[in-house]
Design a protein around this nucleic acid. Structure first.
Lengths: 334, 334
DNA sequence: GCCAACTGTCGAAGCGCTTCGACAGTCTCA
DNA sequence: TGAGACTGTCGAAGCGCTTCGACAGTTGGC
């Protein structure tokens, strides 16, 4: 396996055909007789040929690599982001593409660099803010891109996400069905709202609208992620609203603290307080008690983002906005 | 920014020099007069030139990309892995390299593919098992690689990791200094030991050896990650060993459950039970109470892995094993 | 003041692939 | 039975870069 790599010319010689024939066997862009194809594929196998990615990219103007831009900012729940990321990698492989990982610390310039150097054919951006510095850049790039999340001005961009407004509303509807009249939303840390991250706000809007629509009494609070801060928030909340019996938690890192805090305050879940979470399934299942939750369909979102970006690479039309509907899994906490 | 990309030939024409001169300005491989260099750099800037990655890789036999192989198996704590990953990306950029993300679902064949196709120059592998299927492949690859973690047979491989045995021992020593005589280790889920993941076992070995060396009474248990299972384990542990007063927790996902369980059992931390964790700093700081901990130096490990792989790319010698010493941060829990 | 050594630049070969136009051989149908 | 349309394959151009050898011009030593 060491030593010089096998080239297409060696494959051609071994199979007794022209270099271009080998290329056409591989790409399928011209018809090749079954017999020739078999000879070529045999030679490829016995020689262990792998096309040189650089040469291919130079000649074909396609690198078969997409960039995954993953800022990893404070307050984001990493396991969820990571599930998006692996879903993107898996989906990309299905389209015969690899994934280049970009983080934030190079800034937008990194995006320009990998696009302009033809290192990548297209981009998938995660963790999008409402006023994202990367967005203006995307508009002037020739390479297609897809955002996971929505910026404030999504016109002309392709965006995919869970429909968080619907998710927030779905949680409220569920609590209303169960007869709860006073409810609260515990959301992301304050810093996330200040940054105007779209999904946190949209959940809150969905929550608030549904509270009004169902004629409930509801309040939405940001929620930090240390046990003490969560405990303080919950203690205060229960003190100021004695009738509160339904809680929507949209903060994966705080979920266990919320349950611990309720336990410590002697409130039983679900008898005294019902809890609905918006979080990944594994977090909901692992909690004590297992939580009724709207799952974050990370795999689905990642897969959809890749599907869209591939369609754009083929020059096909795609919808600007793709909102995946929320799905509520009912467990022991409501 | 749209339209055809700028080539080195256009830069050369614009600056009034030969193509090779531009190349030498960029690579610094031959001396260029200050005057010419300035003219070339000016042209590069005004034209917005970015070298074509594929062309460069074809001509120079270097892609300036390294692969990061990240299996993401069950039981692994994702935020920690992700911190390794971002550390690797950041460090790689410092060496003017990008990072291609590979996951497990393609299997070892994916590694061979990206290496053989010259998509990457080198590999960094994370989450290494004792009997890792990827390891034999690495030995026959021409491309240099570095492992984060240790397989059973590390001879001839380059491995970096926290010195988990020393970390386990350090925790025991700390508890012994504080006067605790009966201690326990709550480790990773049982499946992780069965898989023989190196770091879990090495921590346990360090723990056990240090318990003996300090003449303590100690027991090491695996630990699942749901609240109920943790609670059962702890309840049983305290019942069977009434004198137990020191706990080492090496399981980030269970840390909060352990504290919650002790709270529920009415045991105060640190008055009744002292807790030392081996986990990332942010988890330890966010816990209630903040935990004395041996941090997992993800940034340092990632950076070191990249440093080593770059040295290997330069053809320089590197040590087979790099063990980073543990560092104990004392907080409120002991 | 001449040869050797150095400095700074150039031109051209080639990296391994894709793709275009050409073309020999077959098939089809008037 | 021959013109036209297909099929399957080939050869060569070129993608944008790095690098090697060449060479004009400049220095420096004697």
């Amino acid at each position: 396996m060491s030593g010089r790599a096998v080239t297409i010319a060696e494959v051609a010689r071994h199979a007794g055909v022209a270099v271009s024939t080998v290329s056409y066997v591989l790409s399928g862009k011209r018809t090749i007789s079954a017999d020739t194809r078999r000879r070529v594929l045999d030679s490829i196998n016995t020689l262990g040929y792998h096309p040189h990615a650089g040469a291919r990219s130079l000649a074909s103007k396609r690198s078969n690599v997409i960039a995954l831009v993953l800022p990893l900012r404070a307050g984001m729940h990493v396991p969820v982001l990571m599930r998006f990321a692996t879903a993107v990698v898996t989906a990309a492989r299905r389209f015969d593409h690899d994934v280049l990982l970009l983080t934030a610390d190079e800034g937008p310039e990194g995006i320009r660099r990998v696009a302009a150097s033809a290192l990548v054919d297209a981009l998938v951006l995660m963790d999008v803010e409402l006023h994202d510095r990367r967005v203006p850049l995307l508009r002037e790039l020739a390479e297609p891109s897809v955002l996971i999340g929505f910026p404030a001005e999504p016109a002309g961009l392709t965006c995919v996400d869970l429909d968080f407004a619907a998710a927030g509303a779905r949680c409220v509807a569920h609590l209303a069905e169960r007869g709860h009249r006073q409810v609260a939303l515990l959301g992301a840390p304050a810093v996330v709202y200040e940054r105007e991250t779209g999904f946190a706000r949209r959940t809150r809007e969905g929550f608030t609208a549904a509270v009004a629509a169902h004629g409930l009494d509801g309040v939405a609070l940001p929620c930090e992620e240390t046990f003490d801060e969560v405990h303080t928030t919950i203690t205060g909340l229960l003190a100021s609203r004695p009738g509160l019996s339904g809680l929507v938690v949209h903060n994966e890192a705080a979920v266990n603290h919320v349950l611990g805090s309720l336990r410590q305050l002697g409130r039983r879940v679900p008898e005294d307080v019902a809890v609905v979470a918006i979080c990944p399934d594994d977090v909901a299942e692992r909690a004590g008690p297992p939580l009724t939750s709207v799952l974050i369909p990370a795999e689905e979102v990642g897969r959809e983002a890749v599907r869209l970006v591939m369609r754009k690479l083929e020059g096909r039309e795609v919808p600007d906005a793709t909102l995946l509907p929320p799905h509520l899994a009912i467990r022991a906490s409501t």
